[in-house]
């Protein structure tokens, strides 16, 4: 009984810790918390019961774990659906790749909770409470570490880039962005716009940055953190990212409400590298050969 309770306690604590709401503001409403906390509690309960049930020769109880896995897969489905629907109302869309990443994380966190509860309750059952608590503490630390994935700042240099016009054509450094006809729009872009150039460190990073979903995530994160100077009827002020075909560099053009270059650079550096955009051409013989 102590083992199970300890397992549930640590599992639930892990879910609470992982539910920290940050600038992504999701979930930021009470009902979102309720949904995820109660599912986390169920996950913890299932995980905590597994080892004691197994040792008490209650084999059928363990099959419930597989039932739980099906349930948690549905969470990803739900998250994806909700976020995709809400994305239409965003001034700067998250993009499908970012949404998929978030949904996947929500699913994985429940498995993590289940695993922590299983480890803690199992160890407590087999040894003693103290060992269980130590195990739980380490598991919580491990879970917090897992929350941090790589960010753009680790795969590329991010530096300010100069915005200029050649006739109606807009450039950030030498990367062409678009053709803007109206004089007033050009003046606004020059006055309010900020340009950032992202230079990949290697070929792996180049492929990550080439991914359109990754670029949408950068635009979305930059816009949420600095505010965006646009409304639904000013499509020309949408932040965009364009690629230099020769070198694989990426440039971002954004019209933030708060024109602060240092904050923009740090916001871009902290954009997570999306799981779905990750590719490693340098791991292949052809990729390595082509790199030099």
């Amino acid at each position: 009984m102590t083992a199970t309770l300890l397992g549930i306690g640590f599992g639930f604590a892990a879910r609470c810790l992982m539910l920290r709401s940050d600038y992504r503001q999701y979930p930021a409403y009470p009902h979102g918390y309720v949904t995820h906390l109660s599912l986390g509690l169920i996950a913890a309960l299932l995980g905590a019961l597994a080892v004691p049930a197994l040792l008490e020769r209650e084999f059928t109880a363990v099959t419930f774990l597989s039932l739980a896995a099906t349930q948690f897969r549905d969470i990803r489905e739900i998250e994806r659906e909700t976020l995709s629907k809400l994305d239409i109302s965003n001034l700067v869309a998250r993009g499908p790749d970012y949404i998929e990443g978030i949904a996947r994380v929500f699913e994985a966190r429940n498995y993590l909770v289940m695993l922590i509860a299983l480890l803690v309750s199992g160890l407590t059952y087999l040894t003693n409470v103290l060992a269980g608590i130590i195990m739980g503490a380490f598991a919580l630390l491990g879970a917090l570490r897992l929350m941090r994935g790589p960010v753009i700042g680790q795969i590329a240099t991010v530096r300010p880039g100069r915005i200029s016009f050649k006739g109606p054509n807009l450039f950030v450094e030498d990367i062409h962005f678009m053709n803007l006809a109206r004089e007033e729009v050009r003046r606004t872009v020059l006055a309010r716009g900020l340009g950032v150039v992202i230079e990949p460190f290697d070929d792996n990073a180049r492929e990550i940055l080439a991914n359109n979903g990754q670029r949408m995530a950068i635009a979305h994160d930059a816009a949420t953190q600095l505010g965006i100077y646009r409304d639904v009827d000013t499509a020309e002020f949408t932040p965009i990212l364009r690629r230099d075909l020769d070198t694989g560099r990426i440039a971002l053009l954004i019209l933030p409400l708060e024109k602060d270059m240092d904050c923009l650079v740090s916001a871009v550096k902290n954009v997570p590298v999306l799981e779905s955009s990750t590719s490693r051409p340098l791991k292949s013989r052809a990729g390595r050969g082509a790199a030099d």
Partner: peptide, 24 residues
């Protein structure tokens, strides 16, 4: 031309591009 293009852009949520021959 600028004025018409601006109105149309706001109403249709489109972007005005200049073909540089007097055509937007």
């Amino acid at each position: 031309q600028d004025r018409i293009a601006t109105y149309l852009a706001r109403i249709t949520e489109g972007v005005v591009h200049d073909l540089e021959n007097g055509v937007y």
